[in-house]
């Protein structure tokens, strides 16, 4: 019982983690992309549709990553090349993604999907208690952890990561140093888009293998909140994602117990928890100020 609950917590947390890690890199480069929800839903429909038509969930995941990156490029072109307002453009991306995915997905509503199988490692998977928990998850669970480790290493232990953080902290100085601010931001935005696409595909291929309009249900926004919660540090995103996975699964189990509490009020818990967490974090202003990339959301036009 406990084991299966913990496994489902991981499936609820993994898409949040993947999307948030992508957005963390974007924000570290000084760009605020509020379009995570839109890129995620595009990934969800792409993954679902490609997996269903080709029969291969892996092709679906691959296509979702590509589409996520392509859609984010739209955002990148507007905010980085045409220096439009990042908040408004991110919203546009979300609205566009939700609309377009609904349109594409019309013919996929109600069709049974394909589930990406779990990884069953023979001997280790049979270990008591931790066996399935650590060695019997779906492959993307492992990818999400590796992704976090890779991003943490990249940001804090490589020269390119340092450059990316420099761009996010002070784009004028970085530009004066000869760092290609816009190019680095384009790459970061595309990485974020790819991650959001992957996270979306996770929803439609692992979490609930089907297509429902608006199926991301605010997870893209929760991922954005997680980045703030984690004060832009990769491993703290893992903690946040699992906390939210726990709340989500906890309220689902409470609903299954048929308690006297109405299911809708339980369903609103993850959203209320997000607000509560944001308030707690932002109360500590010094901490937030210290960690927020200083150029976050600010437009940059290179002077030539």
């Amino acid at each position: 019982m406990l084991e299966s609950i913990l496994i489902t917590v991981a499936t609820a947390a993994t898409p949040l983690l993947i999307a948030a890690i992508g957005e963390l890199v974007v924000e570290r480069s000084g760009v605020l992309n509020l379009g995570v929800e839109g890129m995620m839903i595009m990934g969800a429909i792409t993954g679902f549709a490609v997996a269903l038509t080709t029969g291969s969930p892996w092709l679906g995941i691959f296509a979702a990553i590509i589409v996520g990156a392509l859609v984010s490029l739209l955002f990148g072109f507007l905010t980085l090349t045409l220096v439009t307002n990042q908040v408004a453009t991110g919203l546009a991306l979300t609205l566009f993604g939700l609309g377009l995915s609904g349109m594409i997905g019309e013919s996929f509503v109600g069709r049974p999907g394909i589930r990406l199988g779990t990884l069953d490692i023979p001997v280790l998977g049979d270990l008591p208690l931790v066996g399935r928990l650590i060695f019997g998850q779906d492959p993307l669970f492992y990818i999400s952890i590796m992704l976090t480790a890779a991003v943490a290493y990249f940001l804090f232990s490589t020269r390119a990561g340092l450059m990316l953080r420099a761009v996010g902290d002070n784009h004028v100085s970085a530009h004066a140093q000869g760092i290609k601010v816009v190019r680095i931001r384009y790459l970061a935005v595309m990485f974020g888009g790819a991650c959001a696409g992957l996270a979306g595909a996770y929803l439609s291929l692992v979490y609930t293998p089907q297509w429902v309009e608006n199926m991301t249900a605010g997870r893209g926004w929760i991922a954005l909140a997680l980045v703030v919660f984690a004060s832009w540090r990769p491993w703290r995103v893992v903690a946040g994602a699992y906390l939210f996975g726990g709340v989500t699964i906890g309220q689902l189990h409470a609903q299954a117990q048929a308690l006297a509490i109405p299911s809708q009020l339980l369903s609103s818990l993850p959203y209320l928890a997000t607000i509560a967490v944001l308030v707690i974090i932002s109360r500590n202003r010094r901490l937030t100020m210290m960690n927020t990339p200083a150029s976050l959301g600010r437009p940059f036009v290179p002077d030539r």
Binding site: A92, L95, L98, G99, M103
Partner: peptide, 12 residues
């Protein structure tokens, strides 16, 4: 649903 895609495009 085309309408919603239109609306998002318009904002872009």
């Amino acid at each position: 649903k085309v309408a919603r895609a239109f609306q998002g495009m318009l904002l872009f």
